[in-house]
Amino acid sequence: MRWLAGGEVRDGQAGRVRYRCAGDLLFGSVELAETAFDAADGASPLQQAARAAYGDLFRVLDAEGYPGLVRVWNYLPRINEVDHYGIERYRQFNIGRQEAFAAAGRVLIGAVPAACALGVPAGPLSIAFLASRTAPLAIENPRQVSAYHYPADYGPRSPTFSRATLLASSGQELLFISGTASIVGHRSLHVGDVAAQTAETLDNLQAVLDETARVAPGARYALGDLCCIAYLRHGEDLPAVRAVVEARLGRHVPVTYLQADVCRADLLVEIEASAGHPVQERQP
């Protein structure tokens, strides 16, 4: 991942967090091994690692003066496995993340960052994040229940993220769409059908773009304006997913295909996206 910024770039490190900042933007990362924690008082090692990593992240943003958390990328091992206390690991992560937001005095609904959470085979909890000196605009998807309002069926604590964020910074307007999948309302659709899941996911991306244009009338984006990353649970699904994506977006849209586990065990594909243009190019 590479971010380009005009002006002087400053490197920094505070504890486990490494970051670079320039002007209005700060990009950083933090890694924390679960082995640093023991299960205790109902909190799994992953829950504690998530709480600690996000706590470190928020302290850096407060110290450096970048309070607007815009976008977060979360990578955690074995995301769909059930281990400590009979709770799926993604749900353990959500508990720790929400605890850290609350401890830092951050809101838990509404003005929360765009995000994704993907599963990797092994390694530490790894988090990358983009923050700004100004607050982004959080955007939801009318076709979906906001993740922070999910019912208790999806875990003891709801996921703390918005469907997208829109940021005006240094003459640019940047749109970040969270990891998006075949979910309508709060339910997964088309279980076992990767092509249908991909089509539903693209419908959700379009819904986010439509909502962005509604809440910020100058911010008009089409699917063809996006730069996408598609995460596939099974590598052998690549031809089917690519065929649906190219039929809908065309071959000119940059799409990177990666193998990763998606946050729900019944989901086979997830797509995240971003777009941007100079503010002066916006159409009235």
Score class of each variant (00 low, 15 high):
67 P>L: 00
203 D>M: 06
205 L>W: 02
18 R>N: 06
116 C>P: 01
214 R>E: 07
185 G>P: 11
180 T>I: 03
249 L>Y: 02
79 I>T: 08
261 D>S: 14
38 D>M: 14
237 D>C: 03
153 D>R: 11
21 C>L: 12
115 A>R: 02
71 R>Q: 14
191 V>F: 08
79 I>G: 14
110 G>P: 10
246 E>V: 08
238 L>K: 06
71 R>I: 04
217 P>E: 06
195 A>R: 03
229 I>P: 05
97 R>Q: 13
107 V>D: 15
31 E>G: 15
182 S>A: 15
131 A>N: 07
216 A>S: 10
36 A>Q: 10
282 R>T: 05
228 C>N: 05
35 T>G: 12
91 R>I: 00
21 C>N: 08
65 G>L: 05
231 Y>V: 09
3 W>C: 11
140 E>W: 08
16 R>F: 10
218 G>W: 00
103 A>P: 00
119 G>S: 08
14 A>G: 13
128 A>Y: 06
156 P>W: 07
174 L>S: 04
276 G>W: 00
63 A>D: 14
90 Y>L: 07
1 M>D: 12
16 R>M: 11
201 T>C: 02
158 S>I: 05
33 A>S: 13
251 R>I: 04
91 R>F: 00
216 A>G: 06
143 R>L: 14
244 V>Q: 05
39 A>H: 05
79 I>H: 09
222 A>T: 08
65 G>K: 04
74 N>D: 14
142 P>A: 11
182 S>L: 09
159 P>M: 03
25 L>S: 04
189 L>P: 14
9 V>K: 02
96 G>A: 09
163 R>W: 13
168 A>M: 12
119 G>K: 04
239 P>A: 01
110 G>R: 03
250 G>K: 01
37 F>C: 11
50 A>Y: 10
195 A>F: 04
249 L>M: 04
242 R>N: 11
218 G>F: 02
41 D>T: 10
130 L>G: 08
277 H>V: 05
259 Q>E: 12
148 Y>N: 14
165 T>G: 09
15 G>W: 01
274 S>V: 09
225 D>G: 06
205 L>T: 01
153 D>I: 02
52 A>P: 08
148 Y>V: 11
136 P>G: 09
269 V>F: 07
19 Y>W: 12
216 A>E: 05
169 S>G: 07
275 A>R: 00
47 Q>T: 15
174 L>P: 00
209 L>F: 01
49 A>N: 07
113 P>E: 00
255 V>R: 02
157 R>L: 14
123 G>C: 12
24 D>T: 09
246 E>A: 13
46 L>V: 09
175 L>W: 04
156 P>L: 05
58 F>L: 05
65 G>N: 08
128 A>L: 11
113 P>W: 01
89 R>M: 05
69 L>G: 10
105 G>N: 12
226 L>K: 03
251 R>E: 10
40 A>L: 08
51 R>A: 15
30 V>K: 02
192 G>P: 09
108 L>C: 12
188 S>V: 12
240 A>I: 03
29 S>N: 09
207 A>H: 00
48 Q>W: 09
118 L>V: 08
242 R>I: 09
201 T>P: 02
198 T>D: 03
28 G>Q: 03
10 R>H: 11
252 H>Y: 06
265 A>D: 15
249 L>A: 04
258 L>E: 11
149 H>P: 13
9 V>R: 02
133 R>W: 01
138 A>E: 05
23 G>V: 03
260 A>N: 07
